[in-house]
């Protein structure tokens, strides 16, 4: 009997620990970032692009970084979503179970590769390639928005494939049979019936992929060039919110450090929005299936 009480307490303590940890992180980030928000102003921080943290009158505008985070997220998803959906359709409907298992195994390994290694790989391949072929353009160093997009697409692909495969597999076989029975061919069935039935799962995959992309730091920092500007084309360098924190944290002090935490707050808000969207989508999905 005592043993049971002990283990019950253990479980409860674990959950309290886990939720307290999240709470502590939130409180910490907000406490550290608040002085910069108060000194410089939240609105100014979001709508000003000038980031000069060590000037006499320091400015902490994050606009360019917010924009480049959003743009690189969207563009990388434009690459990884079609590839992800098509390959999950292929895996679920067009190959046999053995091949599917092998490929899913590979996808899972891909998901587990540390981001710094992906970043290094892209640095040595894509970044070198870009510099070797476009060096004659002023401002092109290979480290660029394009390389960052490539890294992010690579990193979100496994998440998107896994979630899409799961949601396609969960489609009620009755839909498929009914569609085939009505004379629709396989491709028609996939696109008109199955993908539609699985759409809430696919949306979830996209949002999860977006969350992974926004939070990615090391790999992006290695390849993006980290210049604070609004790139005029994809070959120019750029800096995202996460790489801003990682690039400057080691030497920052005072208000500069607070401002880096403030970019963390803004990142946090963006991720919260994504999670809320995810929650809404998943709930809606539940109603759809009922």
């Amino acid at each position: 009997m005592k043993k049971q009480v002990f283990f019950e307490t253990l479980y409860k303590l674990s959950i309290i620990f886990a939720s307290l940890l999240l709470l502590l992180i939130i409180i910490f980030i907000f406490l550290e970032g608040f002085p910069a928000l108060r000194e410089y102003g939240f609105i100014k921080m979001i709508f000003n692009g000038e980031w000069q943290p060590t000037a006499k009158n320091p400015s902490f505008g994050l606009l360019y970084m917010i924009l480049s985070t959003v743009v690189s997220t969207i563009l990388s998803l434009l690459i990884s979503i079609p590839i992800g959906i098509l390959s999950s359709v292929c895996l679920v409907r067009m190959v046999n179970a053995k091949i599917k298992n092998i490929i899913m195994f590979i996808v899972e390994i891909l998901a587990g590769i540390p981001s710094v290694i992906v970043g290094f790989f892209v640095l040595k391949t894509v970044v070198s390639f870009l510099y070797d072929h476009f060096y004659y353009m002023v401002g092109v160093s290979g480290n660029s928005m394009l390389a960052a997009i490539f890294v992010l697409a690579l990193m979100s692909l496994p998440t998107i494939i896994t979630v899409c495969v799961n949601s396609l597999e969960a489609v009620d076989p009755m839909y498929t049979e009914a569609s085939l029975g009505l004379g629709a061919n396989k491709i028609q069935t996939i696109y008109k019936v199955e993908l539609r039935a699985a759409r809430s799962g696919i949306f979830a995959a996209i949002v999860l992929g977006a969350g992974r992309v926004i939070g990615e730091t090391m790999a992006v920092m290695l390849v993006s060039g980290n210049a604070i500007n609004l790139p005029k084309n994809l070959l120019e360098p750029t800096r995202t919110l996460t790489s801003n924190i990682a690039t400057e944290m080691s030497y920052a002090s005072g208000l500069h450090q607070n401002a880096l935490y403030a970019s963390g707050i803004i990142l946090f808000i963006m991720i919260m929005i994504i999670n809320i969207v995810l929650l809404v989508l998943l709930n809606k999905g539940g109603v759809d299936n009922a």
């Binding site: 980031w51 000069q52 092109v140 060039g225 500007n229 690039t247």
Partner: peptide, 18 residues
């Protein structure tokens, strides 16, 4: 750097490393 300590480098597409 201007008198105000503003760096002129950032707007010229540098590769910034730490």
């Amino acid at each position: 750097k201007t008198d105000q300590g503003i760096s002129l480098v950032d707007s010229n597409n540098p590769v910034i490393v730490n």
